[in-house]
Simulated assay, not measured.
Amino acid sequence: MELKTETKKHIVWLDVVRLAAILMVIGVHCIDPFYISPTMRDIPEYTRWAAIYGSLFRPSVPLFAMMTGLLLLPVGQPLGAFYKKRIFRILFPVVIWSVLYNLFPWFTGVLGLDKSIIGDFFCYTQGSESQALGDSLRDVAMIPFQFSFKENHMWYMYLLIGLYLYMPFFSAWIEKAAAKEKRVYLGIWFASLFIPYATAYVAPWFGVGYLFGESTWNAFGMFYYFAGFNGYLVLGHYLKKGNGWSFPKTLAISAVLFGAGYWVTYSGFAAAAADAMSTEADMELFFTFCSPNVAIMTAAVFLLFQKVRINSERVARLLANITKCGFGIYIVHYFLVGPFFLLIGPSSLPIPLQVPLMSVCIFLVAWGFTALMYRLLGKKAVYIMG
């Protein structure tokens, strides 16, 4: 069903996809302490479940990119109007919250707290905590160029702004291209997703470090212009109208796709994590969002959720509110990961249940905070919460 509100129309099944993607993102961040925290990474069960859940939640960010392509391609606004509506709406919240994240260490010093609390909140900073104002201001000054480990999730904001910059130019082709041409594009894009694996496993057979024209002086190889998250934009746009399959057929195909993608993702990451000689790049290879295994997992989730039907208007409006608050939930949730891990991680709760419980709790608190900001500030809340 479609739900009409005062400002826009919500595609309800897409709201369900967005809810799943938000929970997946939060879940991915909930496992960070499992293999980064010194007290947890030496416990095999924690690292095993980090691999299980980390592999399960890989479609998170690609789902957001697919939804962006579905909703915004082809772009129906002039260049300036599109940039003003899309980029500037997220730019203010991103800058405000990036500043807050980076000033947090200094605030803890002002309050007289031990600097270890910084590592408790942001596990990637453990061992390098600093409460010096100069260090915080340096990180703030770097915001236009790069995120810090204190706001690790903000990497996606740089990517999203880049996609927004690109979309009006790409849109002209999308609008005129036939379905067959889009399938050809997606086929070449899917082939490009194998390049990291080919570079890691095939290139050494030939005694080379690069493939398809890449070299130390050229990072733009043969498939470069088809690679990356723009493929997810096109995939979301292409699948917008559904596939006409029955639910049983969709469920069967989605299960096969997701199962195959998950097997590659989990087995590859688990093998790399078990090898003491593996580098961070080796471990991230099978977790890469732009990889064939993650792409088929993402497509499986998207195809399956397209079949969701919500007949309750109350549930539909609840999902619409989650969509409204979704950007704010994404921005603020990283502040909550550390505290909830401290509450739940050391508990007697079985490890397999800790990540789902943390994810749901963080989601509810972040959603409640974002909804409260909208209630208190009205439309002005968009400048803070997006």
Rank of each mutant, 00 (worst) to 15 (best):
R48C: 05
F122I: 06
S267D: 13
A219E: 14
H10A: 08
P59R: 04
V294H: 00
K307W: 06
S116G: 15
Y210M: 07
G213L: 07
A281D: 14
G368Y: 10
G76W: 08
W205N: 05
V110E: 05
K84P: 00
G69M: 03
S55W: 10
I87L: 00
L233D: 02
S37R: 13
Y210P: 02
K176V: 10
F92Q: 10
V140N: 01
V234D: 02
C123Q: 10
S130H: 11
T199P: 01
A81Q: 14
V16Q: 00
V94H: 08
A20E: 03
V202S: 02
A252E: 09
K249F: 10
L23Q: 04
K324G: 10
V110F: 13
K182T: 06
V332Y: 08
L211K: 08
P74I: 14
M277W: 11
K85Q: 11
A51I: 03
A132W: 09
L257A: 10
A366T: 06
Q306M: 11
M67I: 14
V140H: 01
P59V: 13
G268A: 14
L133S: 06
L336F: 08
A65V: 05
L103Q: 00
M40W: 14
Q126Y: 13
L163C: 07
L73V: 06
G134Y: 11
K85H: 11
I90S: 00
N311K: 15
I322G: 03
P248V: 09
A276R: 10
L349G: 03
E2T: 15
L23I: 01
L63R: 01
F302W: 05
T125G: 01
F289W: 12
L100I: 13
S60L: 06
P346A: 13
A255L: 15
F145T: 03
L19T: 02
T265R: 02
I322M: 11
A276M: 08
F82D: 00
Y46M: 05
A271F: 08
Y201P: 05
L257I: 12
V17H: 07
H237M: 05
M1S: 13
